[in-house]
Every structure is written in C-alpha cells, then in structure tokens.
Simulated assay, not measured.
Amino acid sequence: MFSDVEGAKGFYGDVLGWTFGESSSEYGNYTQAYANGKAVAAVVPPMPGQEGQSQWCLYFASPDAAATAATIRDNGGEVLMEPMQVGDFGTMCLAREPGGAVFGVWQAGVHEGFEATGAPGAYCWAEVFTREPGRTDTFLPAVFPYTAQQTQDDAVDFRIFSLGGQPVLGRMRMTDDFPPEVPSYINVYFGVDDCDGAVARATKLGAILRFGPMTSPFGRFAALTDPQGANFSVIDLTTTEGQMPETVDV
C-alpha cells in the first residue's frame, strides 16, 4: 500500500527490475508487479483511513477466509477488514496479530498468489518483527498449521515456523535498537542478483539503509526503508557464509 503508487512503481522497477500491469480502477487501482513475466507482488493506494502509512502487507493463504477470520478473533487477533470477495480473483481480509503486526489472508479464486518465489525480483522470505514474541508465538500456530523451532542463540530471540517440514516464516523479537515509535511489522525479503548493487540503487533513489549488507548462511542481505517509509529487505540467496543455526522444536 503506497500513498504514491507511481513513485513506488518507479522505485521498485529500478531496484528489483519489476514491470507493471494495467491499473484496475474496479479494484481500487490494484496494479500487478511482475519479475521476468511472473506475478510477484502488487501495489495499491492506501485504504480509506490508512493514508500516509505506506507499507508492504503479506497475505497468508487460507482455504476459507471467513473461518480463518473467526480463528484470528478466537486467538486474540483483530480483524481490521472483514473477508471480502474480490471478483473471481479470491477473497481477502486484513488482520492484526496480538503482537501488533498487520497481515492479510487470501482465499484463492483464479488468482492463486505468487507465480514465482525464491528468485531475483520475487518474494523469498518474511519475518514478523514483534515486541511481544510470546503472544505472537502462541497466535501463529493456533491460526495456521505451523510447527515451530527456536534458534539456539543467546544473542538473538528468533523462531522459525514451518509448514509440512518447510520453513515458511521467521519471528524476530524487536530489541531496544528499534525506536519506540516503530510498530511491530512483517518484513518481506525480495530476491536480487547482487545485494550491494540493489542497495546502491535503492539508496540513490532515496531509500534508507537500516542494516547490512551482511552475508549469512541464508544469503547476503540488507534491510531498507523505501522513500515512502515502507520497510523491506533484499537478499542474494547464492552468496552464503557460515553454518546454519541450531534449532530446537518448541
């Protein structure tokens, strides 16, 4: 959701190489973004009442958005927008988990979601940054069919949620390094061929570098805030260093 949709298209087009489809006025000026011809994201103006809060929103797949909305409420979450059918594309709803991060739910119709993942320009990973990890950790496996593993690292409170044995989501406890005015949020990672090159392009266009670039066992990544204030990260999955962290089932 971006206050300046054309500005977002220009920025992410340059940084991630995205191209864009036609804006759909029937569906709130929703504009699909493509990487190498595959649908990887979309940009839309803020919903009424959300103006000035540019941000990425990650949608979790659900076979029944209405049932998921009820489960969200039953487990201490807040439904911000009731399930709404979007033509024959699918049904969406917006919610906030108890730790404060906003997310979406998507029940697929003809639009199933990402056409590519884990590739340059495409979604790769996401982490819930929360100030209340205990509440978030209880909520997520109650709403979605996740198992959880906690990393064995005294310096970082990090949990990995998996689906069918495959890691799909991280949870990071926000430390005092985050200014108190920064709310809990979901940080999305987009793939790039060259992390340092992507950071250089982004900062030249007005983005703020928050962390990195740093090489990890998962790839070389950096955290950024775009010119409109939306947080995101870029990662080169081919450049890795170090051993994978040890985890324990929880």
Results as ranks from 00 to 15, higher is better:
Trp56Met: 10
Cys57Phe: 10
Leu58Tyr: 06
Leu58Pro: 06
Tyr59His: 14
Phe60Leu: 14
Ala61Leu: 05
Pro63Leu: 02
Asp64Ile: 06
Ala65Glu: 04
Ala67Ile: 05
Thr71Asp: 12
Ile72Cys: 07
Ile72His: 08
Arg73Ser: 11
Asp74Ser: 15
Asn75Arg: 11
Asn75Ala: 07
Gly76Lys: 11
Gly76Pro: 08
Gly77Arg: 01
Glu78Cys: 02
Glu78Leu: 07
Met84Asp: 01
Met84Asn: 05
Asp88Ala: 07
Phe89Arg: 13
Phe89Ile: 02
Gly90Trp: 02
Gly90Lys: 02
Met92Leu: 13
Cys93Glu: 02
Ala95Pro: 02
Ala95Met: 04
Arg96Asn: 03
Arg96Asp: 00
Glu97Trp: 01
Gly99Glu: 03
Phe103Leu: 14
Gly104Thr: 13
Gly104Arg: 13
Trp106Met: 08
Gly109Cys: 10
Glu112Ala: 15
Gly113His: 09
Gly113Lys: 11
Glu115His: 15
Ala116Trp: 04
Gly118Phe: 00
Gly118Gln: 10
Pro120Val: 01
Cys124Arg: 11
Glu127Gln: 12
Val128Gln: 02
Phe129Ile: 00
Arg131Gln: 07
Glu132Gly: 00
Pro133Phe: 02
Gly134Ala: 07
Phe139Ser: 09
Pro141Glu: 12
Val143Trp: 02
Pro145Ser: 14
Pro145Lys: 14
Pro145Gly: 11
Thr147Met: 04
Gln149Ser: 14
Thr151Phe: 13
Asp157Trp: 12
Asp157His: 13
Phe158Asp: 02
Phe158Gln: 05
